[in-house]
Amino acid sequence: MKAIILAGGSGTRLYPLTKAISKQLLPVYDKPMIYYPLSTVLLAGIREILLITNPEYVELYRNLLQDGSQIGVHIQYAVQEIPRGLPDAFIIGEKFINSDKCMLILGDNIFYGQGFSNLLKKAVKLEKGALIFGYYVKDPRAYGVVEFDSNMNVISIEEKPEKPKSNYAIPGIYFFDDKVVELTKTLRPSKRGELEITDLIKKYLELGELKVELFGRGFMWLDMGTFDGLLEASNFVETIQKRQGFYIGCIEEVAYRMGYIDKEQLYKLGYKMRNSEYGRYLMELAGES
């Protein structure tokens, strides 16, 4: 399975912060926002990654993440000239996907909770159809909403419904089989002129090939697309890291624990940033080994 991280868009909800920089490069406590979805991809065991962003930001991401070899993965870059919706990522990345299965994750989402790695390991084993997640929220009207029965069979998918049929929002992480490009090409733009991810998911529902997994109580999903969301995410990361001492979204640590790099490589990565707490954390991890 391959992975696409979508880091495009204009980030207008965060103006003026994003007038001169990509939203996904903004700091979330002690690291760039893009580190969090990238760490999720690494945790899933996926090492072939395509990052899609605006043309003016490609070199910024390349300077930050390089080709990924320093953390034992391969990162490619592609451009989305104008916002055309989330499924457009599969059309842009058609050659990259090359008839493989694909994970799509939004560049402004944080996922954190016990058992998350097990859910990801289960998801990447997907052989046929699509897999989405459900996250319980008090007011789901601002999200895509999934309705399902007692046997976890999906009944309906709705985008920002006025009267939601469930309280389960669909977070920005999706898994699709090798039909995803073919099905995306059958989509028509919505009234706002974009391809909608809910329409793509419905295609799989119509085929009877859509599965849903639920995030449990205590699991944290944060969307950092607003000022409040950005602040909430930074405060959350700070609280966990200071209280427990474990870092969230640390791509070098995840790469090391997944076996992509060894302790010597981890130490060298930390040493380059030794004047920061982040760098010293990596060096301490390597020393503990």
Rank of each mutant, 00 (worst) to 15 (best):
L38V: 10
Q244D: 13
T239E: 01
N235A: 06
N98I: 02
S69I: 03
G115D: 06
S69Y: 02
I170A: 05
S156R: 09
Y143R: 15
N235P: 03
M273T: 13
R47M: 03
I82S: 02
L38P: 11
E238H: 13
I248V: 12
E284H: 06
V237G: 10
F148H: 12
I97R: 11
G134E: 07
Q76S: 09
R62P: 09
I82R: 08
L51P: 05
K203N: 08
I34Y: 01
D149S: 11
N167S: 12
P189C: 03
A142N: 10
A255K: 03
L200M: 07
M33G: 05
K191T: 15
G208L: 01
G68Y: 12
K2M: 09
W221A: 15
F219I: 05
I110Q: 14
I240W: 13
Y271D: 15
I71H: 08
G9W: 00
L119G: 10
R188M: 11
L42E: 02
M103P: 13
I170L: 03
V73Y: 10
L200I: 12
F96H: 07
P37G: 11
V237F: 03
D178K: 06
W221S: 15
Y35C: 15
F116A: 04
G287P: 03
Y271S: 15
S10R: 05
L120Q: 12
Y143L: 03
L131G: 05
Y256W: 11
I132P: 09
